[in-house]
Design a protein around this nucleic acid. Structure first.
Lengths: 217, 217
DNA sequence: ATATATTTTTAGACAAGACTAAAAATTATT
DNA sequence: AATAATTTTTAGTCTTGTCTAAAAATATAT
């Protein structure tokens, strides 16, 4: 069994490993968890003793198979709770993160199985992120950043790269939600801004926005 | 805001105060929380600093209004989650306690309001215990222990005094659930055992059982 | 009312998890 | 390759919540 703190470290390392492909540095972990590198070193030793990470001094850290499975299970719980909050309890997609951050640590296999079934075995959370299955596997769908689309290309909005409340509220205001079809009308080279067609309306999109929105072509 | 440990102390003192009407002793708290009296003394000082309890050395402890409200809110969450687990997620009444014990500490006013509404504003949990309202008030219903019924008296099963998994499973096995009507056929003076009629069947009930089952006449 | 038993508090210690400051190792620079 | 800059680890401290053992207060019994 893992403590709250250990679970948060595992989850952070898991997320960092997904786009890293090498040992995760103590500094990177410290930054994500808003703590100090020295605290990370301490915790990594504990996790290493528990055989969920492999740790070589000064060489960063990687999850073991057990560590990956444990972390994926926490992410699974987080995302299933997010679906529950949005689908059943009228939360909007910008309100769920902090609550799910608490709920992901509830320990009850039956609870999460039942939530899964109650929701009809969803495969993605309200932000388009895949929900790991019981074995920790997740099937990623083919998706591209809106910023990589070319002029006249179309696609469906399937996810966000930034789940901050501010960004999500901004998307709401602009009428951009998951499932919406959009087409790139214009693409400005000098600032990377776009003009897109969505719901028959023309919309100006900054490069920052286009870099945080996933599209399925 | 209160820590997990502080919340558990508050909840325990709240439950002890309900059938006590005087200062709660450190020993009583220690017993319930399976900890040591010295640890209780330490924690009580912290709770006193936070103005949720009134503490006089050697004189026991009482909740302040703020303390009562805080504790009642934790109990409210616990019981609402229990209803949720039973009504929506197919848990049986003997499986919910440990999970609710974790869920009661989730901090999100919106979450618990939405759960409340989602469940149709229930007034009692799966064991017949009243759910405090948002202000911490609970309306207790008129109920008597089965052991206090006289021969030929009837009533409806409305609650249990012991929520242990063992007792609840025993009741399930005997077909005794909340809402069931029963009648006392015989009452043995020498051991307090009863013969009752339930669902048209005659059932022998020990004194221990009769002392843990609440009936509304 | 005094002695005895019980309860409660204090004092000191420990583990978990975090921090700061300093030392050690690694990486980058010239 | 030697020095400088950066990263990581170590050493020592702090807080929270717990514990044991001893002291102090209260309750009980003769």
């Amino acid at each position: 069994m893992f403590t709250l703190s250990e679970e948060n470290y595992l989850k952070t390392i898991y997320h960092l490993e997904l786009d890293a492909d090498k040992g995760i540095s103590t500094n990177a972990i410290a930054k994500k968890l808003e703590t100090k590198a020295s605290s990370v070193t301490d915790m990594i030793k504990k996790l290493s003793d528990k055989e969920v990470v492999v740790y070589k001094k000064y060489k960063g850290v990687t999850l073991t198979e057990l560590g990956k499975k444990t972390a994926a299970n926490i992410v699974r719980k987080h995302r299933l709770w997010e679906v529950f909050l949005v689908e059943k309890l009228n939360f909007s997609w910008d309100e769920v993160h902090d609550v799910a951050e608490q709920l992901e640590h509830i320990k009850s296999p039956k609870l999460i199985d039942q939530i899964d079934a109650f929701l009809g075995f969803p495969t993605h959370d309200p932000h388009g992120d895949p929900i790991p299955d019981k074995d920790g596997n997740l099937k990623t769908i083919e998706k591209s950043l809106l910023s990589t689309l070319l002029k006249n290309e179309s696609g469906i909005c399937v996810g966000v790269n930034d789940s901050s409340s501010e960004f999500l509220k901004f998307l709401d205001k602009k009428g951009i939600t998951l499932g919406k079809q959009l087409t790139v009308l214009e693409k400005e080279d000098f600032d990377g801004s776009l003009s897109i067609l969505i719901d028959g309306e023309k919309l100006s999109i900054s490069n920052k926005i286009a870099n945080n929105l996933y599209i399925q072509k």
